[in-house]
Design a protein around this nucleic acid. Structure first.
Lengths: 110, 110
DNA sequence: TTTTCTTATCGTAATATTGCAATATTAAAT
DNA sequence: ATTTAATATTGCAATATTACGATAAGAAAA
């Protein structure tokens, strides 16, 4: 097939999976890290920072936006992108929760 | 193409992307959550817990294992799978770091 | 040893992703 | 109005992913 059976899983599971999937590419991680580095939202020079052609970068930005990881507003002939704080908090919490539960696991075998 | 240009990004970026990608499917999130729920490593009944055929589940387990998210040991005719604590800690730290940096962002615009 | 039970692998079809050239769009600058 | 400068979209080729039926492999039980 190639398509996920999203309707068989919980909303929360799908939500985390969508976020993780969007971050599942080094170019998109690099975009996030660049946004952190410049410490602002204005980022018209993101294409020059990545070893990818402009349409490819644009596509990655679109995927990050679709997943809700970055927000973008039109501002003249440049776009203002920035990371959604809530999403990152959500991911931190989720994996923190998983980590804590594993640490407190009763029966270990591996 | 279809293949990522992994060699153009840093090891750290690729590492996080590989982990995120492996978690980028609701079935694999469901597997992680099931492993947490049973609070142990032995998990021979994972197929019955998921709305997917046995070969599909096996394939998802393999991907989680390849990414280093779960570890598995053969134990008779069943497999003993469990979540790697370090990986979850790594993800928590990574997203926690991103979140903190965004919170302390000087110039906000979105 | 044959059956049974469980997980892995193979093969394959349907769909998704990745990447980029070409082109479109949009708004500021001239 | 035309040029310029930036991002978005389209179209397409190469590859990856997802899912599952069929089958294999392995060990325990009969």
């Amino acid at each position: 097939m190639g398509a996920s059976k999203t309707d068989h899983f919980t909303d929360k599971q799908n939500e985390i999976a969508i976020l993780a999937k969007a971050l599942g590419h080094p170019a998109r991680i690099a975009i996030i890290e660049y946004l952190l580095k410049v410490d602002t939202c204005i980022c018209g020079d993101i294409v020059n920072e990545l070893p990818l052609a402009q349409p490819t970068v644009s596509q990655h930005l679109k995927e990050l936006k679709n997943a809700g990881i970055i927000k973008g507003d039109i501002e003249g002939n440049t776009i203002c992108y920035c990371i959604d704080e809530n999403v990152m908090h959500k991911l931190q919490n989720y994996f923190g929760n998983v980590h804590t539960k594993i640490k407190n696991r009763k029966k270990n075998c591996c």
